[in-house]
Amino acid sequence: MISNFPYIAVIVFISLGIYTLIFNKNLIKIAIGICLIENGANLFLITLGYKKGAVAPIYTMAPAGQSMVLPTPQALTLTSIVIGLATTALILSVAMMIYKHYGTLDTDEVRRLRG
């Protein structure tokens, strides 16, 4: 039970994100939900690579005689973080332009005012 705690944290992150995506109409809140799902995925990747009692995979002044955690999930998480940052910036820019054109951020209002 207690050994599975990081997986449960991942589940809480992703569920909160999907709840936000389903039940909210505000574009800023939708962006927050997408960020939560991204953070859950990143935490899941990092969790998969952890080894008990291991140090970071860097040889500079490392403590002697200890094993190292798996480096590949960390590298892929770095990739994922930067792509998430670019996506979030693009989502927020589109939300700003929608607010400038329609004067609101509610998705129903935006649909009604078209044309």
């Binding site: 910036a89 927020l92 820019s93 700003m96 607010y99 400038k100 004067g103």
Partner: peptide, 13 residues
């Protein structure tokens, strides 16, 4: 770019 556009959006508002 986003800071400049924020100024513009506020004026429009």
């Amino acid at each position: 770019v986003m800071a400049g556009a924020m100024e513009f959006t506020k004026k429009k508002e």
